[in-house]
Amino acid sequence: MIQVINRALDLLELIANDPEYPKSLGELADELSLNHGTCANILKTLVTRGYVEQIGTKKGYILGAKSYGLTGNEAYQKDLLEAAREPMNVLTQSVNENCLLAILKDNQRVVIHRTFAEQDLQVRTADVKPIYDSASGRLLLAMLPNEKIQRFVSKYGLPVGDSWPEILSEDQLYEALSLISQEKLALQTIPNRHVIGLAVPVYKHGLVVSSLSIYLPEYRYMAIDKRKLVLSLRKCADEINNKLV
């Protein structure tokens, strides 16, 4: 076996085990018992080829576009990612909160890109979550045509458990989705985690193709200018929209 190929694949598999968490060079090298210099050289090649992405100089490494492409994941839209990357970095630097870009796939919300803040306490949310169980999922569902929303509800039913506890009937669900659609904004409170999620739509040729979200601890949300936060989120989405024209 060719050792360097094995090491490169080991690195990819280790990064993919927890894709929402950027792993530092030291973490990766120590976990695989690799020399740090050797690990850095392999990572440099993987970054250059697009299979791994480096988040800043100190935050670590996550999977890159090529890795998602190998899986045949249609959710990974190259033009969308290219359009979103810079505006999302600017947004995160501006509000100092984690941001994510997500799309719909079946009955789930799938994250396709993240940016990470410098806060000591950061909100982490799974790459894949049930649609009802996230601000981004609710926003994307609400922005679908009515007939698609009805088909979704007919196929997957109402929210269950704690996924959207305020919704107890179809009428309440349709009313809530209608309000999100009108405001082009979804806001989710997660009481048991004391987390707030906000999401706005991203358009391409007049159609909603993804959601742009911010998730942050409730105590920080209560202490900031909420209107300014939403305006910043919408401004970022508009910048992405303009690049997708």
Rank of each mutant, 00 (worst) to 15 (best):
K66S: 12
L104T: 10
N35F: 10
Y203P: 05
G72D: 08
L198A: 09
D106F: 08
K228G: 04
T92R: 03
N17A: 14
R7N: 12
V160Y: 13
D79S: 11
L187M: 12
L177T: 00
Q122D: 04
S24P: 03
Y203G: 00
T45Y: 09
L121D: 09
D10F: 07
Q122I: 09
T45M: 06
Q188H: 02
L233Q: 01
I62L: 15
L80P: 06
G37K: 08
R138N: 14
P165R: 13
P191I: 03
N17I: 01
N98H: 07
K44G: 15
W164A: 07
L9A: 11
I224V: 14
E175F: 10
L139F: 04
S210L: 02
E175W: 05
L34N: 05
E175P: 00
E86K: 04
E97W: 06
L173K: 02
A117G: 12
N41R: 15
R227V: 15
A102H: 04
T92M: 08
N41I: 06
K129D: 03
V160K: 15
P22K: 04
Q172F: 05
L207W: 12
K105F: 10
T45F: 11
K66M: 13
N242S: 12
I5V: 15
Y174K: 12
Q108L: 10
L187D: 01
N17D: 14
L121W: 06
K58D: 13
K59H: 07
G26I: 04
I103C: 09
K105A: 05
R234T: 14
V110W: 09
L32Q: 08
E147F: 15
L46P: 07
D79Y: 01
S211R: 02
L12V: 02
R227W: 00
V111T: 15
P130Y: 13
V230L: 08
G157Y: 13
L231P: 01
Y156V: 03
D133Q: 08
Q150C: 06
Q108C: 07
F116M: 09
L70K: 07
V52P: 13
K155H: 10
L28M: 13
T38M: 11
V195H: 03
L80F: 04
A83P: 11
K228W: 12
G69R: 02
S178R: 15
V123A: 05
D238S: 06
S94K: 14
M88R: 02
Q150K: 12
K105S: 13
D79L: 01
A40H: 15
L158P: 06
P145E: 14
Y156K: 00
G37V: 07
H205I: 00
S213P: 05
A75R: 07
K235Y: 05
L244M: 10
C99V: 10
K105E: 14
Y132N: 01
V90P: 04
L141Q: 09
L43G: 11
Q108T: 12
V95W: 06
S169F: 02
K105G: 02
V202R: 01
Y219D: 14
T48A: 14
V209E: 07
P130I: 13
L212M: 04
H194C: 00
L207S: 10
F152R: 04
A65N: 08
T38C: 05
T48L: 13
V110K: 12
V111P: 03
E27Y: 08
S232Y: 06
V123Y: 08
E147N: 14
